[in-house]
Design a protein around this nucleic acid. Structure first.
Lengths: 354, 354
DNA sequence: TCCAGGTCTTGCATCGATGCAAATGATCAC
DNA sequence: GTGATCATTTGCATCGATGCAAGACCTGGA
C-alpha cells in the first residue's frame, strides 16, 4: 500500500488536486457538495498529509524545537512536558533536543542547525558563554528559557532569579535561621543571580558576614549536593542553621547527606530549594521550594515564539535581503513569570531557635 | 539574508548544483580540486542543508519519533535521554511525543500520524488496548518499548517483566520477609506481568496464601503509592513484612507514607521497586530496585528500527503495492534486555526477623 | 441583454534537494 | 590510432504539497 497522495484523492473524487488541498486546509469557498465528496474520498483512502512537502512549499512546518541540557533532570523533564502540552493546544509538535550541557550542540542550535525543520527554537541554555549568543545574531525565531539572555537581544521567559532566591532566603530568615549556607554557585549566569538574591536577603537582614557562606558545585545535581554537604559536615566547626540550595536536585542531595549523618531537618538544619519538582514533595522531610509556574512559562514562550514566527514571514516579504530584524520586533522587555513559595516541613520550625 | 541554497553555492563555486550535492553527501567520485573549491564556497556562504527538501526527495528524514506517556515521569525521562544519546551516535534526531497516557494519541501514532516526518517510531505504549495494535498493522517501522506487544507482531525491546518481578520478590524473601504486599496492579499488561512474577516467587517459596496481597492502583505515580500505603496503614491489622512496588514512583510514595506514619524501613517493612530511577538512590532510606539497562534498550531498539527502515526501502522496490511486510522481516523473537538488582538500605536486614 | 461582483474550481509554477542516466573527458590496452 | 573503461560532472525530472492568478459559473441590477 503505497502512500495516498492528494493526487490519488483528487482522482478518486473527480476533482482537481487544488480542490483537495482547499478542503484539507479548510478554505472557505468550497461548495458543501464538493467538500462532502472530497471528504468521503479522503476518509475512504485514508489520506494523511505529507508534512515535509507542505513544509517545503509553505515555509512552515508546525514544529518547534526545544533544547534542554539534560532531559533526565526532573526540572527539564517537567518543563518539557509543560511545553509539549502547551504546544499541543496550539497544534504545534515539539522536537526535543538534549544538548547534554555541551555548548557545542548549543552553539550549533544557535547557528540554525534546525532551521526549516523547526519554525522556531526554545533554548534553555546552560553552558553557552554569554558572548556567543550575542555574536551570532540568529536570523530565526528564538526564545530563551530560564536564563537571562545577555544583552536581551532575544526575548527570554522565566522567573526573576534574584527575587526568587531572595524570597527563599527571606523565608529561612523568618524561620529564625541566621547562619545560612548558599549551595550551588557555579559558572552559570543563573548561579550568579541566585547568589545575588542570597546576598541581598542576608544583607537586608543584617546578618553578620561571618555567617555568610557560598558553597560552589560543578553541576546542579543530587550527587553534587550530596558531596558538598558531606564535605561541609566533615569539617569540625559548628553546623549552619540552614541550607539554601540553588535547585531541588542539590537540595535532595543535601537532605540525603544530612540524613546519613543523623542531622535532623528542620530542627538542626532547615533546607530550601528552587524548582519545586514533583520529587520535592516526597523527600525526607518534604522540601520547601520555590515553584515557578511552568505552564505560564510554556504558554508565554510559545506566544512569543509564534509572534516572531509570524513577523518573520512578514519581514521577509518586506525586505528580501535585509538584516535580521527578528529581535527588534519583540523589543519590549518581558516581565518575569510568577513563582510561589511552597512551604513544607524541611523549613518549618515550631519556634525559632535563637 | 535569505537562505543559502545549493544553487547559490553552485554559482559561487562555478559548478553544477548536482556537484555541490555530491560534495555535501560525500559522494566518492569528486576530484580533490572540485571538492576543495566547493567546500570553500560552502563555508564562505554558510550553507546549511534543508532537511525538509532532502526528506521529501529521498524519503528519509533522519528523524525518528519516540512516544512516551509522560515525559515528566523520571523513568520515561531517563529512557528518553538514553534514546536521544544513542540516536545522536547514529546521526539520528529524536522527535519526542508525550501521549499523556491518552490512547487516542497513541492510536494516532500507530495509524501513522508521524509517517514521513519520522522514518520510524519507538512507542512506549501505556493504555493502548491490545487489540488496537494488532488490528492496525501499521505499514511503517515500529518498535515497542517496554510492553509485550500482543501477538508479537512488532519487535519489542525491554526487560522480562515477570522475571524482574520475581527477582525483586525473591530478594525480599531472602531477607526473611514472609508477608509481602505487591503494590501496583492495574489494567496494564505490564502490571499483569509483574503480578505474575510476584505470584511465582511467593508460590515457589511456599508462602501461605493468607500472606499474599496485591494492592491495586490507578497509575504508577508517587501519589498513588502514597495513598495506597496510607490506606493500608490505616487498617487495624498487623503490618506486612515488605512492600514490592511495581515501579519506583510507587515505591517513593510508599516510603513517604511509611515515614509519615513512623514505620521504620527496613526494620519494620522492607521496600523494593523497579526502574532504579536516579531519584531512588536518594530516598529515605535509599531504595532497593531493579535496574533495567536503559542504554542497552535504546541501542537495541534503534538497531531494530534501522533494520526495519532499511528493509522497508528495499521491500517497497520489490513490491510497489504489496502488503505490509515490515513485521515479517523481524520475525525472530527478541531476547529480553538485561537488568540488575540494586540492593540498597530499604531492603537490607541485618538479621532476618522470623 | 449585458456587465459587475461574487462564488467555486482549476492549471501551472514552485519550494530545495536527490535519482537517474547520459555527456564529457581521461586513461589504457591492443 | 581506436575503441573500451573508468572517473568525473552535468541536466532534467521528480518528491507532494501550496501560492498565485485566471477561468468558469452564477446571481442580480441597470
Amino acid at each position: 500500500m503505497a502512500r495516498v497522495r492528494m493526487r490519488d484523492v483528487a482522482e478518486h473524487a473527480g476533482v482537481s488536486v487544488r480542490t483537495v488541498s482547499n478542503v484539507v486546509s479548510g478554505y472557505e469557498h468550497v461548495s458543501p457538495d464538493t467538500r462532502a465528496k472530497v471528504q468521503r474520498s479522503l476518509d475512504e483512502l485514508g489520506y494523511r498529509m505529507d508534512y515535509l512537502a507542505r513544509g517545503l512549499r509553505s515555509g512552515r512546518t508546525g514544529f518547534i524545537a526545544l533544547a534542554v541540557p539534560f532531559l533526565a533532570e526532573p526540572y527539564f523533564a517537567e518543563l518539557a512536558q509543560a511545553v509539549i502540552r502547551a504546544a499541543g493546544r496550539r497544534g504545534i509538535t515539539v522536537l526535543v533536543e538534549s544538548t547534554a550541557g555541551d555548548s557545542g550542540v548549543e552553539r550549533q542550535i544557535i547557528e540554525g542547525g534546525l532551521t526549516n525543520v523547526a519554525d522556531g527554537v526554545l533554548l534553555s541554555a546552560l553552558t553557552l558563554p554569554a558572548g556567543d549568543v550575542a555574536a551570532k545574531k540568529p536570523d530565526f525565531p528564538l526564545v530563551m528559557l530560564g536564563e537571562h539572555s545577555v544583552g536581551d537581544q532575544f526575548p527570554r521567559v522565566g522567573i526573576d532569579n534574584v527575587a526568587a532566591a531572595r524570597t527563599a532566603v527571606e523565608h529561612l530568615l523568618e524561620q529564625g535561621c541566621r547562619w545560612i549556607v548558599a549551595l550551588g554557585r557555579n559558572g552559570s549566569e543563573n548561579g550568579r543571580q541566585r547568589t545575588e538574591g542570597y546576598e541581598q536577603a542576608m544583607s537586608a537582614a543584617r546578618v553578620r558576614r561571618v555567617n555568610w557562606l557560598v558553597v560552589p558545585v560543578e553541576d546542579w545535581t543530587r550527587d553534587q549536593g550530596y558531596a558538598a554537604v558531606r564535605e561541609l559536615l566533615e569539617g569540625d566547626g559548628p553546623l549552619p542553621d540552614a541550607i539554601f540550595a540553588f535547585n531541588d536536585a542539590l537540595a535532595v542531595g543535601a537532605l540525603r547527606a544530612l540524613d546519613a549523618s543523623g542531622v535532623r531537618v528542620p530542627e538542626d538544619v532547615a533546607v530550601v530549594g528552587i524548582d519545586a519538582i514533583q520529587e520535592s514533595a516526597y523527600t525526607h522531610p518534604p522540601l520547601t521550594s520555590i515553584a515557578p509556574d511552568l505552564d505560564a512559562i510554556a504558554e508565554r514562550a510559545l506566544a512569543l515564539l509564534e509572534e516572531q514566527i509570524q513577523s518573520r514571514g512578514a519581514s521577509e516579504e518586506a525586505a528580501p535581503d535585509g538584516e535580521a530584524q527578528v529581535g527588534a520586533v519583540v523589543a519590549a522587555p518581558q516581565e518575569p513569570t510568577p513563582y510561589r513559595l511552597v512551604v513544607r516541613e524541611s523549613s518549618r520550625r515550631e519556634a525559632p531557635r535563637e
